[in-house]
């Protein structure tokens, strides 16, 4: 294990709605994730796994509890500070790819670099290299509509890792893909974890995909149910 926690959630709750209609999606989550880990989060629908992921990704805010990112209390940060945290430390891969429509693969991958203010020349080179790393050399100028689902997810992965983030958050990255393509995508994500030391957090409900992870956390009803490392006894 490599030392202190990179991410730490303590007593996180999330409530949607108010009064009678209020629904508590998270009922007190305590979780610590170390740098370089590959964590799969599993659980039935409505168990709070995606909500937890969104809070970890600073896309959503918890109702109560504390979230430390490298020792920084994220719940005390402003909107802009959270945006900067996403910009500099986080990469996202979504189930629905979420690429910009009618925009070429290269321009999609360049986008995070533009927000980082990278000059054009190094931006193009970096984005091309990222597309190569996901096996899409030659597809730089194709728009999402011209790419298969697997290829679109590869573009999304290239966009997520192009900034060399500390953490890659993947919400059901293989949810829209067939099994063979899913395996390729998982191999790719696994490779970034092994070779570049990027910490990976992945939500999935497929055991086969979770098997790529080093650690599997199961959610039930807004709480952590089980949490074990691969190879250890469950």
């Amino acid at each position: 294990m490599n030392g202190a926690a990179l991410l730490r959630l303590s007593g996180i709750t999330k409530t949607y709605g108010v009064g009678q209609a209020a629904f508590q999606a998270l009922k007190g989550i305590d979780l610590a994730i170390t740098a370089g880990d590959f964590v799969a989060v599993m659980g039935p629908s409505g168990s709070g796994k995606s909500t937890t992921m969104n809070i970890l990704g600073c896309l959503d805010t918890p109702t109560s509890g504390s979230y430390e990112f490298q020792g920084v209390h994220v719940e005390q940060l402003s909107r802009n500070e959270r945006a900067l945290l996403r910009r500099n430390f986080l990469g996202f891969v979504f189930q629905g790819f979420n690429l910009l429509a009618r925009t070429t693969a290269l321009e999609n991958v360049e986008l995070p670099l533009i927000y980082r203010g990278e000059p054009a020349a190094s931006r193009h080179a970096t984005a091309r290299r990222a597309l190569e790393q996901v096996g899409l050399q030659g597809w730089e100028h194709h728009t999402p509509a011209e790419l298969s689902g697997g290829q679109q997810q590869r573009v999304a992965i290239a966009r997520a890792i192009v900034t060399r983030p500390a953490v890659l958050l993947a919400d059901e990255p293989t949810g829209n893909l067939d099994t063979a393509t899913s395996r390729e995508i998982m191999d790719l994500i696994g490779a970034f974890n092994r070779e570049h030391g990027i910490t990976v957090l992945m939500v999935t409900h497929e055991s086969e995909m979770a098997a790529y992870a080093k650690r599997i956390i199961r959610f039930v009803d807004g709480r952590v149910d089980t949490d074990h490392r691969q190879g250890e006894a469950a």
Binding site: L59, A83, L84, L111, Y115, R116
Partner: peptide
Amino acid sequence: ERTREIGIRLAIGALERE
């Protein structure tokens, strides 16, 4: 479409003012 686009931009680290 544009709201989703804004969501994507915010997710990958764009500031609101950008």
